[in-house]
Design a binder for these strands. Sequence first.
DNA 1: TTTTCCATGTAACCAGTTACATGATTAT
DNA 2: ATAATCATGTAACTGGTTACATGGAAAA
Lengths: 186, 186
Amino acid sequence: MNRVRGFGRTRYALLGVLRFGPATGYEIKKLLTETTAHFWNESFGQIYPTLETLTREGKIEIVSERKSNQRGSKRYRLLEKGEWELRSWIQDHKVILQPGRNELLLKLFFSRSEDVAFLRPQLNEYREMIEEYLNTFRAFHSEDGSEQLPEDARKLIGTTIDYGIAATEMQIAWCERTLATMDSIG
Amino acid sequence: MNRVRGFGRTRYALLGVLRFGPATGYEIKKLLTETTAHFWNESFGQIYPTLETLTREGKIEIVSERKSNQRGSKRYRLLEKGEWELRSWIQDHKVILQPGRNELLLKLFFSRSEDVAFLRPQLNEYREMIEEYLNTFRAFHSEDGSEQLPEDARKLIGTTIDYGIAATEMQIAWCERTLATMDSIG
DNA sequence: TTTTCCATGTAACCAGTTACATGATTAT
DNA sequence: ATAATCATGTAACTGGTTACATGGAAAA
């Protein structure tokens, strides 16, 4: 049946990363986990097939291939056609909210006082996890490989960092309030 | 192959809703979209097969069936075995963060000054959507069908509402800052 | 009477993760 | 030498959405 792959938004994530410069699939994944992890992720199972599709479509091309006869590393470069597709996606006005699931909130929604003793450590862990999260990507963005980027791009990337920080702070404050609420229960 | 369905967290969402009292699949969906939409959703394509599975497993049962020979409405009730499973999930300590994707942030991350003119209306729409969102579920929770719920449960549900409000306010503030940043670009 | 809401169910599809197989290169 | 990291790729699975088919009950 030759399933056609790569028709989610994965392709845009890849084209977008390649806008910063040529990269291998491995490097794309690394950059995403280091910078966009709080709002976007891709797995290798998506990345490699999509890179192939994009190449076939003439959106990107291989710039260097270390082929020691079989599996070797391939570095991809964004082509004009790919940049076009990327920009038409960016400019496309339809906005959709994808709320995203939060298992801890679901648990809270169904819980009773008997459960509170078990929820407290979960909340603490949740809090620690997002705090650590924040520190990691904050660290990356302050060392920063984006010195050579134009000012406007840096500012726009800054808004996504701002979002991450604000979201984390909001969640930490919420954790504290929720722990206090729990104290008032059991 | 007789695919086994319903082994995500969908089952817990359904068991959880039935903890409030018997309901039909349709009513479960309705309750979820009215109360947990900002952190949890289920589609009919998941709900109905999972209700069947849970019934087969003896976690829930049909309490009333209006069967006008074929398709009729079925009202389900939580059984002890189901409540057990629900509580063991609630009490299970492993917490995982599922960041959830945000397409608008991804766009911002890859954008340049030429794109700003197109992003501004998207940000405005984003802002309006989450504002409306907040109003809807705030309204539902203030009229509220939860009067008969015990105090502790109401407090815990309150923490999820609190989360929704805090998240929305944070996002609105972020939208404003981001629009200001855009003004400083183009 | 006609529209809206209540209600169930399935098939097709799609997006995405996980686990695995494979091996080169670099650092300790 | 060996461990860590770089690197690609695929198969199996899973979780989930969408579209569709079907029709009863209530309200306008």
